[in-house]
């Protein structure tokens, strides 16, 4: 069997008395979409934050491509190949969509201390950035400031920025949130292809998308993984139905 790309073991994180992550262990295998579902407040975003490096776990380990991530900050993990998207869009608001993606291209090239050549005349930044905007369907909005994009477009831009980093794994925190059924469908098709570029740890509330995409699903409730398995196994798990899916599934 192939080695996991990302290995999370016995992770724990408390906020005061609240255990937001309670002994979580998860693997992300090459080429897979591993969905993480669970009710609001279950600790999904907190888990993503710990993997990306913005929250320090109390205990437990995170290995990525065989390397212990402890002691690496957010920027170092991103350079190492972990790209995340944010549940609430986090963009350079005054910059255009294009410049937001160009920033990621420049970060990937590792050249952020260059002080001479104007970026807006730098084809080695503009061309890859435009190609990525084209891919996510935002080419027509390339020159619009991020602050003026619609909610759905901002979600697309988040994905575009992650793509520009050419990561070894994606951490996507509710990429479909508030996108509407049409947008979700398009994005579902898009993520379906994306897993072949790099595996995806996908936090998502849209169950249609999760069931269509996931190779494996882990269910998080009160900081604990209560079940982990294939789509079929999770659909039919009585505890999951009771705790989370209700009768909808």
């Amino acid at each position: 069997m192939a080695e996991p790309v990302l290995t999370i073991r016995e992770l724990e994180k408390s906020f005061g008395a609240l255990k937001a992550t309670d002994g979580v262990s998860i693997d992300l295998m090459p080429g897979e979409i591993h969905a993480l579902i669970g009710p609001n407040g279950a600790g999904k975003s907190t888990l993503i934050h710990q993997v990306s490096g913005s929250i320090k776990p109390d205990r437990g380990t995170i290995h990525f491509l065989g390397q212990d991530m402890a002691g690496l900050d957010v920027a170092a993990r991103a350079r190492f190949g972990l790209a995340r998207s944010f549940q609430t869009s986090s963009l350079a608001q005054e910059f255009s969509a294009l410049r937001n993606v160009m920033l990621a291209v420049q970060a990937k090239q590792g050249s952020s201390l260059r002080v001479f050549r104007p970026v807006m005349r730098d084809r080695s930044l503009i061309e890859p950035a435009l190609a990525i905007l084209e891919r996510v369907g935002l080419a027509g909005r390339a020159h619009v400031p991020a602050a003026e994009l619609s909610h759905g477009e901002r979600r697309q831009l988040e994905i575009a920025i992650a793509l520009a980093l050419e990561p070894k794994a994606f951490l996507l925190d509710e990429p479909m949130a508030g996108m509407g059924p049409e947008g979700s469908k398009v994005l579902t098709g898009f993520l379906d292809d994306l897993r072949h570029e790099a595996p995806i740890l996908l936090v998502e509330h849209d169950m249609d998308a999760v069931f269509a995409l996931a190779d494996r699903i882990s269910v998080l409730v009160y900081g604990r993984i209560i079940a982990s398995g294939t789509v079929e196994e999770i659909r039919n798990d009585p505890e999951v139905r009771r705790a989370y899916l209700g009768d909808a599934a």
Partner: peptide, 20 residues
């Protein structure tokens, strides 16, 4: 420049800059 892009982006949203 590229440096200026990173600097101005850090002013607008430093979380975004670290994340890339």
């Amino acid at each position: 420049s590229r440096f200026g892009a990173a600097l101005q982006a850090a002013r607008q949203n430093s979380v975004r800059v670290s994340a890339v």
